[in-house]
Each structure stands twice: as C-alpha cells, then as structure tokens.
Design a protein around this nucleic acid. Structure first.
Length: 420
DNA sequence: TCTGGGGTCCTAGGACCC
DNA sequence: TCTGGGGTCCTAGGACCC
C-alpha cells in the first residue's frame, strides 16, 4: 500500500510571528490579510475566543479587545522565507515531494517499511521544530485525500497520525466523526447538495452509491469518493508546473476615481506579473484588465469592468504589456466611479522556446527587463521601476499594513538583534 | 470607516463546420 | 415550403483550495 504523508504547518502565519516574539507563545494571536481586512491565521487561543477564519476585522474587533488578541498585518516575505526553510528540510527525507502551498507538502514515503513509518514521521516533525521552530502536523494515508483526513486529526494527536496503521474499525470511526464539509475538495455548495441527500459525514460519502455521487458532484466528487475508499485518483506532482495564468491584483487602501491612479496601479501589477512570467521562461499572449468599485458599499451600486486583449505575438516584455494594459484601461474606465480594486491577468501562456513567427521579442526590451529583474531580485524592495508606476508619488490607493512585524529574515535592515 | 490574493479544474453552452 | 445532427473548439462562470 502507498504511504502518502501530508505535512501541514500549524497556524502557519501566527507560528512565524511567534518565532521571533516568543512572548506571544501562550497569547491569542491573529494575522490579517492585505489591507488589514480579514483574519487569515489564528492561534488556538484566538480560535477559542470565537474568531472565525476569514472574518472581517471590523466584525471581530470587540472580541479582539475583550480577549486581548495580538493582531499582525501579513508579512508574506517573512512567511515565504520560513516556508522555504521547511521545504528544504522535507526534501532531505524524499525526492518525491509536492509543495502544495506555502504551509503544506505531500511526500511519497512508500519506500519506508510500514512498521517504521510512524516513527519516521515523528522524527520529521521533531527535526522541523528543532531546526526551524515551527510546529507541524503530519497525516499519513494511502492517498492524498486520506493523508489530509489524517493530518486534520493529527493536530489532536501530538502532531502525527498514521491512518494506514489503524484497524478497519478505527478508520471507520475516524470517517464517521469527520463532517463531509471538512473533507478536502468539498466546499459549501457540494456540502449542501450532499446534505440534501442525507449525507453528512465522510463515512456516509464513502459508502454512498457511486452513480449518485457522480450525478450530483461530477467527476470531482467521484474522485474524492474513490480516494476515501482507499484508491488513488490524485497523483503526487513532483515537479512544479509552469503557471497557465498569472494574476496580479490588489484592493486599494482607499478608493479612487482618478484614471491616473488606476494606470499607476495596473502598471505595477503588470510589472510584477511579467517578472513572474520571465522567471518561469514563458511568454503570454493575452492580457486582461479589470477594475471594480467596492462591492460592500451600501450607497453605490457595484461597478465591475474588464476587457481582454490578445497580442499578435506572445511576449514577456513589461513595456509591451504596460502599453496594452493602459489602452484597455482607458477603454473600460468610467468617470464618476470610485474604484476599490484593480487587477490584471496574463493568459495564453507558452514556453519561450515555443515562439514561432518572424517577429521576435524586441532585444532591447528583453535585455532591459533582464537587468531590472536581476537588480530587483537581489533586494527586498524593488530598486528599479517603470515610470508608469509613479513610484515617487504618494499613492492614495496603496495597501494598509499598519501592524506589520519586521522582515526578520528577508531584509538586512531588519534582522533580529540578539543581545548577549 | 473597516470585507485578501492567487491559482486550478470542470462544465455548459455558443460558434462554427461538415 | 421544407430547415439535421454530430463533432470540435473556445470561453465564461462555478466551485474549490490555501
């Protein structure tokens, strides 16, 4: 039988903040999304204080005050750096690893003798804590879905749970306790469809007639059902695929009705996306731009505008896409609307080597982009910008991150100081 | 006053062709 | 006046994930 492990960092962003401020260890802590909008990571104490995942800050402010919850803006460059350290350690255990998200990885440990597997996982957990200081939970099962199930219970079991080592009765018991809405891949919609069929738990989903599930939840549901039964439908993907779409978008700190503000924002998003595009050695042919007003506004109706352009030739040149983005923006822009968010997406992505036709990328532009990438990669805050971003102007639309911790590991200026 | 961002996969339905 | 049906490709939108 296969042995698939899921390593899941506990309350990852909160754990990263605690790493550099140990005094937070027993305190309730939350980390907020961009613009300090929603809660996106909670310590166990904060969960007990009744703060929900994704809850808007302004709705839980009273509870935060009452329970003296410590609040942080998100510090993604710090979290990314800590994540890299953990993934590097995991790679010493096996080459068959899929980095699934910033705080999760699947490992194929089928080569480890089954009786030794639990001990192997405990060793892994201890090593990560010892070397990086982040607590993790590890679940192991015959496939990804059951590894996920095991990991969700591992949090109560000293961080490690080996589903394969359980008896049939224990496995059934585990699935009976698990609500179907908490199964990986079952969201709100699917959960309510299943509820209508009288299916409430993972166990009931596993036992349900297969044609019923495929009718109601399509092949996606069928795959999950098979995986709950112990078959493999979702393989581990060991090499990172190039992105098929690259999105860059942000909500603004405050709204704006100025085209020039939107142009500056969109130009910045295009530069970020193009840099990612070049990083994976790709070209894109389509660019879409969208802008919208505040969907939560009680006074103004929602305005959401977008348009897409397809270039005659695939490109990864920042100036080419900035020019196109501005053209689209001018086309869709409506006067008198107060905009809260803008974004761009690059699509029709292909490998650099796939480029055909006689028009190649302008060598001058591509050399310039290369130099900008190189300089900006070597430092925390970009050194070089296209003038279209208006970097020297104070931007009213920029993000609010008033509660951010230091860049302890990713900025020379903000390294942790140790006094001895 | 204050509600994230980035990504994937799947499907239904329209356009088009023979 | 009669006005098919099957196949492919593409896209928008739904659903879900972290």
């Amino acid at each position: 039988m296969k042995q698939i492990a899921l390593i899941d960092c506990n309350n990852f962003y909160v754990s990263c903040e605690r790493l550099f401020q140990p005094v937070l260890r027993d305190q309730p802590v939350v980390v907020l999304s961009n613009n300090d909008g929603c809660v996106i990571s909670r310590s166990n104490e904060a969960k007990q204080a009744g703060i929900a995942m994704g809850e808007p800050l302004h709705l839980c402010q009273a509870r935060i005050n009452r329970y003296k919850v410590r609040v942080f803006s998100s510090n993604f460059s710090l979290y990314g750096d800590i994540s890299n350290r953990i993934m590097t350690i995991l790679k010493t255990f096996t080459k068959k690893i899929e980095i699934y998200s910033i705080d999760e990885a699947f490992l194929d440990l089928s080569h480890i003798p089954a009786p030794k597997c639990t001990e192997y996982l405990e060793n892994m957990r201890d090593k990560i804590y010892q070397l990086v200081g982040i607590p993790v939970s590890i679940g192991l099962g015959p496939n990804k879905t059951l590894a996920k199930v095991a990991a969700s219970y591992a949090k109560q079991k000293e961080g490690v749970l080996n589903y394969n080592a359980l008896s049939q009765i224990q496995q059934d018991e585990l699935l009976r306790k698990l609500l179907v809405a908490d199964v990986w891949g079952i969201g709100k919609r699917s959960a309510s469809k299943l509820k209508a069929l009288g299916i409430y738990t993972a166990y009931e989903l596993r036992q349900a007639p297969t044609n019923l599930i495929s009718n109601k939840l399509t092949v996606v549901g069928s795959r999950l059902q098979y995986e709950l039964q112990g078959y493999t439908c979702l393989e581990i993907e060991t090499h990172t695929q190039n992105k098929k779409q690259i999105i860059s978008s942000r909500s603004f700190g405050s709204t704006t009705n100025q085209l020039s503000d939107l142009e500056a924002a969109v130009s910045l998003f295009v530069s970020r996306a193009c840099q990612k595009l070049r990083q994976q050695n790709s070209l894109a042919r389509s660019l879409s731009v969208y802008i919208r007003s505040n969907p939560f506004s009680k006074n103004e109706p929602l305005t959401s505008l977008s348009d897409l352009a397809i270039l005659p030739q695939a490109s990864n040149s920042t100036p080419v896409f900035i020019k196109t983005a501005k053209r689209l923006l001018q086309k869709i822009f409506q006067q008198g609307v107060f905009y809260k968010k803008a974004g761009i997406a690059l699509g029709m992505i292909q490998d650099t080597s796939q480029q055909t036709g006689i028009f190649m990328t302008d060598p001058k532009n591509s050399k310039l982009d290369g130099i900008i990438d190189q300089l900006n990669r070597s430092c925390q805050n970009p050194l070089l910008f296209y003038a279209a971003h208006q970097p020297t102007k104070k931007q009213t639309w920029q993000m609010q991150r008033s509660l951010m911790s230091q860049q302890y590991t990713s900025s020379w200026k903000e390294l942790l100081l140790v006094k001895i």
